[in-house]
Nucleic acid binder design. Structure first.
Length: 860
RNA sequence: GCCGCCGUAGCUCAGUGGUAGAGCGCAUCCUUGGUAAGGCUGAGGUCGGCAGUUCAAUCCUGCCCGGCGGCACCA
């Protein structure tokens, strides 16, 4: 018996697949359903990590399964080629970002191909290919013509380390998502995509995404943050400040609490506050507000401070009632109107503020069961349900009707109207970087901002950019930006900002449907393949990439480029790959491959191989270079083969959860690979023996069909670990029916079992599956073999063993024919001597028989 | 604070209103021309806690405890 040798078989089968071109997506064919399987394409960092292995193996298992089920599968791969790491490498090592990126792509392509993925490589592209980003520029200009692109000065998030602007979605806890630097606020001329125009669609569209994780939908819902309320203006008592003749406009979600108002507040960067800053005291207060730090994290934790401007406004429902106008640091300029009315009794922030500055606190919502004469608010605002009181015409109404009544009155008075406000902001897409897709416009003194005509696209990056210094290499290139105006023919300057790389990844899935189309998207191809049936990637993109892509897809769809509104019909977010961490006593991190684990009974110790120093075994954390707890996929492939690695990443945990990489785990997978091979290897060659009835063979057949059913259901539900657990059980069962000395019927049943088994393991361990399939004389390659069927009748045993309970406790068992009628079963049970003994001295009250499952006798 | 997920063998996880399972680890034994291995057998579980529904709850319901994640001056 020869041991299974993946080093020989794996390259052999990969070559066979490539030679037969089996993964090329087919043209539309009548009666053949399409299936678009996609994993989030990688950034070409230079080497594959275990996260990639998990991501692409998950997607591949699904794609291979769907192909076996008869779908015309599109499963492409490409590269998210632009981005800062290339510039950083350029700065640190003096290499060219383009060369660095394409070399990385070449290296990673080899590694991905080694993984045995069922990819249609003929469709590969990188977003940094001019052919790709030129098409991106084309649709960008289309969206500009449709009013979805604009430029304005605005306060932006500035990453001082990466020297670029970040979108709101890219600021995490006040820090840049890549650099980790504390983000500053800066005023800059910025390009925006009008994602807020699509806020309602993006929100409502979530309801149709029933194959997305609930969690991601919830996160997007929270991020978009739609709130309904009212926008209205307070009239100034006395002379209004210049520019505020129409009053001071505020936004509220609680117009029902207007009679509880005790002040009006504006943000420190509100235009009115800026106007008042001529007063040194106001200026000093505004300076105080900014002092707390520019980072969002600091703003959020700052203490509430305020300044009474001395201005007063009239209450909209009572002109004689004057409210003071305060500047307060907790009010955000970029939400609503940057001004609010404060109702301390029913808003915690307003209450904190009112207590500090001794402002009135008047409850206007009475909780159920409370006495209006005695109800008061201490340090906790009341935000629950109740009845409005102390509120004149609103008295006695519940909250929702009161909101409607208050809005109606504001509208009748011409002071305001109901309004919907979003937390979502427009998407700032310009980056001050040289290694990105240029914004395809020129600036002309005479004509202003002029789009580059379509026939002059792509606006390509120059070959000779200087990346030796920080900042934007495009602005300091000697000649690139100088051009002529397409409008007047005069001298003009190119825009040197480039697009956020999230723009690049917001439509690549549509480009894959025809990567060489003369237009950004070939509509016929996109309408055949889109939407993506199953998208697989990390949860970290829940509100970044996945929201941008939904927006861009909708915008392109509205521009007539494709029909599908939502790009990803099914989404699966896989967990991270984690590993134990190891440190020396001096705190230095140690890599897993540098140490050996010593097992003594139930305890584990570790020591460094090179010098025997004791190593402390630490927590299990996400694999990262900084903690040195990574395992290089290539090292694993070399020792155990690709299939064992694929099997382990799929078997260990439910795919959506974090999985723990461990040496013993992959060894277990490797042993499974060998045990599988041994079963195939021990089966006699030649044609399948003729099947004939035999109890032993029937038992195996039943188990085979049950396993096919269970694995099919597991794969359908993306519960690969569960499916693999069933295959482990199946293999254990198969060993009860050794080929050596087996009867002909059992050999036939074994052949059926192995034939099904080769196809069941094919999505997970595709190389082993081919070798096994060939060993038992399967037709063609298993990669194109149909998924095995199961016979429902065979998945059930003819004889059932039913546990017999007495008062809910198991007291014995009986054998009956499957499907035996309850009345008959009851008779058999009561005639059973063992059971009868258990019932001695008891009166039978009731006998419950659940068909084919259990018998329970209630007695006392 | 709000929302969500999770808690089953030493570890990582399946599972089901009705007999508690797998891999790894552990123990015993066998094999020693599959050998930096293979195999047999076994131990190990108040299914996080309490209560409720039920003939029967690890599973359903409620409350509590513990862990993880997301959001959070968004008016």
């Amino acid at each position: 018996m020869a041991r299974y040798n993946p080093k020989e078989t794996e390259p052999k089968w990969r070559k066979a697949w490539a030679d037969a071109d089996v993964f090329r997506a087919g043209p539309p064919a009548p009666g053949v359903p399409k299936y678009y399987a996609l994993e989030m394409f990688p950034y070409p960092s230079g080497s594959l990590h275990m996260g990639h292995v998990r991501n692409y193996t998950l997607g591949d298992a699904n794609a291979r399964y769907k192909r076996a089920c008869g779908f015309n599968v599109l499963h492409p791969m490409g590269w998210d080629g632009f981005g800062l790491p290339a510039e950083n490498a350029a700065m640190e090592r003096g290499v060219d970002p383009r060369a660095w990126t394409y070399e990385n792509i070449a290296k990673m392509r080899t590694e991905l191909q080694q993984l045995g993925l069922s990819i249609d490589w003929s469709r590969e592209f990188a977003t940094c290919d001019a052919a790709y980003y030129g098409q991106q520029q084309a649709w960008f200009l289309d969206l500009m013509a449709r009013g979805l692109v604009y430029r304005r000065e605005g306060v932006v998030n500035w990453d001082p380390v990466d020297q670029t602007v970040l979108a709101n979605e890219q600021v995490v806890d006040g820090r840049g998502w890549r650099s980790g630097a504390v983000v500053e606020k800066r005023k800059l001329n910025q390009w925006f995509l009008r994602i807020t125009d699509y806020a309602d669609q993006l929100l409502d569209g979530l309801k149709t995404l029933d194959r997305w994780p609930e969690k991601v939908r919830l996160m997007q819902e929270n991020w978009i943050g739609r709130s309904k309320g009212a926008r209205f203006a307070f009239q100034f008592a006395g002379d209004p400040p210049a520019g505020f003749e129409a009053g001071l406009e505020v936004y509220t979600t609680r117009p029902d609490t207007l009679y509880g108002a005790s002040f009006v507040g504006i943000a420190p960067d509100h235009p009115l506050a800026e106007q008042l800053s001529a007063d040194p005291k106001v200026a000093a207060f505004l300076a105080e507000c900014r002092k707390g730090g520019a980072s969002e994290a600091e703003i959020e934790t700052a203490e509430k401070i305020g300044f009474d401007t001395g201005l007063t406004v009239a209450h909209p429902f009572d002109p004689d009632w004057k409210l003071p106008v305060w500047i307060a640091n907790f009010i955000l300029m970029d939400y609503g109107t940057g001004a609010i009315f404060g109702c301390p009794a029913h808003d915690q922030r307003d209450l904190d503020f009112a207590r500090k500055y001794k402002l009135m606190v008047k409850p206007v919502v009475l909780p159920p069961g409370e006495d209006p004469a005695s109800f008061d608010v201490a340090d906790e605002a009341y935000v629950g349900p109740g009845t409005i009181f102390n509120s004149h015409f609103l008295d006695g109404l519940e909250i929702e009707p009161a909101k409607a009544a208050a809005v109606a009155k504001l509208e009748a008075q011409g002071q305001g109207q109901g309004a919907t406000v979003y937390r979502l902001r427009d998407w700032g897409v310009a980056r001050q970087r040289g290694w990105g897709c240029p914004v395809p416009v020129v600036h002309c003194d005479k004509c202003g901002v002029v789009p580059v005509p379509r026939d002059q696209l792509p606006v390509a990056l120059p070959e000779d950019l200087d990346f030796s210094k920080p900042g934007n290499a495009l602005t300091r290139h000697p000649t690139w930006k100088h051009t002529t105006c397409p409008g007047c023919g005069g001298a003009a300057t190119r825009e040197t900002d480039t697009l956020d790389t999230f723009v690049d990844s917001s439509w690549y899935f549509a480009r894959f449907t025809d990567p060489t189309a003369a237009e950004p998207i070939d509509k016929a191809a996109a309408d055949y393949w889109m939407p993506v049936d199953q998208y697989v990637g990390g949860i970290e993109h829940a509100v970044l990439h996945l929201l941008y892509a939904r927006f861009v897809n909708r915008a392109l769809s509205d521009a007539g480029m494709l029909e599908a509104k939502e790009p990803f019909e099914g989404l699966f977010t896989q967990g991270m790959v984690t590993h134990e961490t190891y440190r020396l006593q001096n705190g230095d991190w140690v890599e897993p491959k540098e140490l050996e684990i010593l097992v003594e009974g139930q305890t584990r110790r570790a020591r460094r191989i090179q010098d025997g120093l004791p190593v402390i075994i630490g927590d299990i954390e996400k694999m990262s270079k900084s903690k040195r707890n990574t395992v290089a996929p290539g090292d694993i492939f070399d020792v155990y083969g690709v299939d064992a690695a694929r099997l382990f990443v799929l078997s260990d945990s439910p795919p959506e959860r974090d999985s723990i990489w461990s040496a013993s785990g992959v060894e277990g997978a490797w042993r499974f690979v060998n045990r599988v091979w041994n079963e195939f290897d021990s089966q006699p060659g030649g044609p399948a023996p003729a099947a004939s009835p035999d109890p032993k063979a029937d038992e195996l057949r039943a188990f085979t069909h049950r396993t096919v059913k269970a694995v099919t259901e597991a794969v359908e539900g993306f519960r690969f670990n569960s499916g693999i657990a069933r295959m482990y059980e199946f293999l254990n069962k198969l060993k009860e029916f050794p080929a050596d000395g087996a009867s002909v019927p059992v050999l036939a049943a074994r052949h059926e079992a192995l034939s099904a088994f080769a196809r069941l393991i094919s999505p997970f361990t595709p190389h082993l599956a081919e070798e096994a399939w060939a060993r038992i004389g399967g037709t063609g390659m298993v990669v194109v073999a149909p998924w095995p069927d199961f016979d429902p009748a065979l998945t059930q045993d003819a004889v059932r063993i039913l546990p017999v309970q007495v008062n809910g406790k198991r007291r014995g068992e009986i054998s009956v024919a499957a499907g035996a009628e309850p009345a008959d079963v009851e008779k058999i049970v009561l005639d059973d001597p063992d059971i009868a003994r258990r019932l001695e001295g008891l009166t039978i009250r009731k006998v419950i028989v659940v068909k084919d499952r259990i018998v329970n006798i209630v007695a006392g």
